[in-house]
Amino acid sequence: MATGGRRGAAAAPLLVAVAALLLGAAGHLYPGEVCPGMDIRNNLTRLHELENCSVIEGHLQILLMFKTRPEDFRDLSFPKLIMITDYLLLFRVYGLESLKDLFPNLTVIRGSRLFFNYALVIFEMVHLKELGLYNLMNITRGSVRIEKNNELCYLATIDWSRILDSVEDNYIVLNKDDNEECGDICPGTAKGKTNCPATVINGQFVERCWTHSHCQKVCPTICKSHGCTAEGLCCHSECLGNCSQPDDPTKCVACRNFYLDGRCVETCPPPYYHFQDWRCVNFSFCQDLHHKCKNSRRQGCHQYVIHNNKCIPECPSGYTMNSSNLLCTPCLGPCPKVCHLLEGEKTIDSVTSAQELRGCTVINGSLIINIRGGNNLAAELEANLGLIEEISGYLKIRRSYALVSLSFFRKLRLIRGETLEIGNYSFYALDNQNLRQLWDWSKHNLTITQGKLFFHYNPKLCLSEIHKMEEVSGTKGRQERNDIALKTNGDQASCENELLKFSYIRTSFDKI
């Protein structure tokens, strides 16, 4: 039985969820670079991206490699990797027998973001014989899940209580170790020597080791999670996991709180800001991140802002960003909400898709409305799209047979046209069989910064309504002859009103 693990408890099935942008060198404390989270699957090609990484700022997932063999891993080693800020997950990587050479110096898994409450997941690794993470000293947050690894031993010899604050939620089941077939031998045991430290858990006094050649490092209890030197002297209180010299914040392997210019500090002093819960960055760093993602459509890219001495992905609820200094300031009234469309555009074809934009005031991208039916549609669209004030790209209304009016965009005031449909149009209306009105132009103002209007096959939309939009939106004169079809717009509506004058002759039985 794995020490510190839980057996036999019912657990939810383990679901495996399925960018080499360097964020800056980590400095003297770390020998390499800070790398983003990685999802490495199918083959070993991307694994080489770990070569210079000291910190993975995010998670590391290595999974679904069915053609790899043990010899493929023999020359692979990433000794610079010290810390993973989120979680480490391995799933069905064939041929991998140990992690001792792959990650010989991995010391800390912070667990800032977890995989279903777990910071370390080893699942269905069919050839893994031992973990071998002999320098792993601290899992700051989260638990361990090690399950269905039929060859995995050296679990009962690990004292997880020396690595985690609590072992109650560890789930370590259905491994070879369960069948008591392992016969784990710690260093020196074969020669009758006791080389590794022994600890007591559940009444068992057991030597602690990761492999037959690597003991588990056990520091004096007084050192807590700070770690200790090879001689057993406690590291500085700002260290986490390990250090090369005692009581020196510049000799830590990793930091308990924050890293700044080669030393570990309790908090980031001005003019620095907390970033990702582990390091200090200056304003320029946060500003660069903001600008890199301002026009990016890459998933996970955030326009970072500053709030409460932190550089964070977005302002919290009730705050909006001051564009001059990136500071989050309290909103006066309802907060603006910028919604970034991942692929640059979004099609609204149902109430469900409209709900995804609920509360958005600025759309960074283009909207395509293609709704053919739905219950209580006008009210639903207004509830979900009615706060949109600005669209950076274009607005396209296409084959939306259920629409009679666009009044559900009740606050839309600006279409920038930074991206144009077919390279020309910022407003595009095609084949809307029941569209009769755009907006009530006596109450609604709309500016279209650039781009043209396109109207074709809107049989109940009168040309007068379209011409009014040209005047109000500032697009009059931009359109070419064929942009607004004269014969297919309003051709099934009563669009022309003329005053009919009647004269009559009164007659009676005795007068003409």
Rank of each mutant, 00 (worst) to 15 (best):
I139F: 03
G132F: 00
T107Q: 04
C255D: 00
G111N: 01
L96V: 06
S324H: 08
S237R: 11
R297Y: 11
D165M: 10
C186G: 01
Q276L: 08
L44A: 09
G241H: 03
C228L: 01
T329H: 15
Y304A: 08
P316E: 15
C182R: 01
R145F: 07
N170I: 12
F283N: 15
K148P: 00
T194A: 13
K67G: 02
C182G: 01
Y154S: 02
L90E: 00
I62V: 07
A198L: 08
R69F: 05
K294T: 04
T194W: 15
M83R: 01
P271C: 12
K294L: 03
L164F: 03
E314M: 07
H48V: 13
N242A: 11
L96S: 00
I306M: 05
H302F: 06
N195P: 07
G188R: 06
D169H: 11
R162K: 15
T45H: 05
L133E: 00
L29H: 10
Q303H: 12
I201S: 13
G111S: 02
V218E: 06
Y30P: 02
C264D: 01
L76V: 15
Q287H: 15
P316V: 07
E181L: 05
Y272W: 07
G227L: 02
V167A: 09
P336T: 15
P79C: 05
W210S: 01
L327D: 06
N195L: 13
C268V: 00
N150E: 12
A119I: 00
P197T: 08
H307I: 06
L44S: 07
E51I: 14
P36H: 04
G32S: 05
N43P: 03
N117Q: 09
G203A: 09
P336M: 09
C301S: 11
T140P: 06
L133Y: 09
V121D: 00
N257W: 08
K251S: 05
H290D: 03
I122V: 08
N42L: 03
K191S: 13
K176S: 04
L63E: 02
H214G: 02
V108M: 10
L60H: 00
G333K: 05
I158D: 02
Y118F: 11
D165F: 07
N135V: 01
V200Y: 04
G183I: 15
P36E: 12
L240T: 07
Q61E: 14
H59C: 14
L99S: 01
D39G: 02
R298L: 13
V108A: 11
S324N: 08
K100G: 07
L99M: 11
G203M: 13
Y87Q: 00
H236M: 03
W160N: 01
K251W: 06
P269C: 03
P249L: 06
T229V: 10
V265S: 11
H307S: 11
C315Q: 01
C301I: 01
S317N: 09
N295D: 04
N42G: 14
I201F: 13
P197W: 04
L96H: 00
Y171A: 13
D75N: 14
Q287S: 06
S143F: 08
G58Q: 00
M65Q: 09
G318L: 12
E238W: 06
A198G: 02
L128N: 00
T329M: 11
N308R: 10
K193C: 13
E33G: 06
P269I: 15
L106Y: 00
P220Y: 03
E147L: 13
E238A: 10
H236W: 02
L326T: 12
N195R: 06
F66A: 13
E97S: 11
E124R: 02
C255S: 00
F73T: 15
G227F: 03
N295F: 12
G58P: 00
N117V: 02
Q287R: 08
P336G: 09
S284K: 02
L164W: 02
P330E: 15
E314V: 10
S284F: 04
Q303C: 12
I109D: 00
Y87G: 00
H290F: 10
F91C: 03
N295P: 03
D169F: 14
V305E: 02
K100A: 13
C328Y: 01
H127K: 07
Q245K: 12
P249E: 08
G203W: 02
I146A: 04
Q216K: 01
Q276P: 05
A198Q: 04
M83D: 04
V121T: 06
I139A: 03
S244I: 07
S98T: 07
S112E: 06
H28T: 10
P220N: 14
C331E: 03
G37Y: 10
M137I: 03
E130R: 11
D86H: 15
L106P: 00
V121W: 03
F275P: 01
N257A: 07
K193A: 12
K224A: 13
L88N: 01
C219V: 01
T157A: 09
V265E: 06
P70K: 06
P31T: 14
Y30K: 00
C243I: 00
N257M: 03
I56N: 00
C252Q: 00
I158W: 02
Q216G: 01
G192P: 05
P334W: 13
I163E: 01
G300V: 09
D75R: 07
Q287T: 10
Y94R: 10
E124G: 01
M38G: 10
D177Y: 04
F258H: 09
F115I: 03
R162V: 07
Q245R: 08
D86F: 01
T194N: 11
S112K: 06
K224T: 11
F115A: 14
A190M: 06
H290G: 11
F78T: 02
F66I: 06
C293Y: 14
C35M: 00
V265K: 08
L106G: 00
Y154M: 06
S77D: 07
P246C: 12
M83K: 03
V55F: 06
N308D: 11
G111D: 00
L64T: 07
N295H: 13
T229S: 10
K80F: 04
G333N: 11
Y273T: 12
S225R: 05
N170E: 04
D39V: 14
N309Q: 13
S324Y: 03
R69H: 10
E71H: 15
R298G: 08
H290R: 04
S77E: 06
D184L: 08
I84F: 01
K294N: 02
G333P: 10
L120Y: 02
D248M: 07
I109N: 00
L164P: 00
L29S: 09
L326W: 02
I146S: 02
L64D: 01
A156F: 15
G232F: 04
C228Y: 04
T329S: 09
M65E: 07
G227W: 04
L29F: 14
K100S: 09
L90P: 00
I56Y: 00
Y319W: 07
G241C: 04
Y304P: 02
I201D: 04
V218G: 03
S225V: 06
D159N: 07
C153H: 01
K193N: 07
S54N: 04
C255A: 01
E71W: 13
A156G: 14
G232R: 01
F73S: 06
Y94K: 13
G58K: 00
Y304H: 07
V265R: 14
C268G: 00
C335L: 04
Q61T: 03
N105I: 01
N282S: 14
L155R: 02
C239L: 00
N175H: 04
C328V: 01
N202Q: 04
F78Y: 12
E97D: 06
C182Q: 01
S213A: 05
C286M: 01
E33R: 11
L120T: 03
F285Y: 03
S143H: 12
R74Y: 14
D39A: 07
I56K: 00
F78S: 03
F205A: 02
Y94Q: 04
Q204Y: 12
D101G: 14
E231L: 08
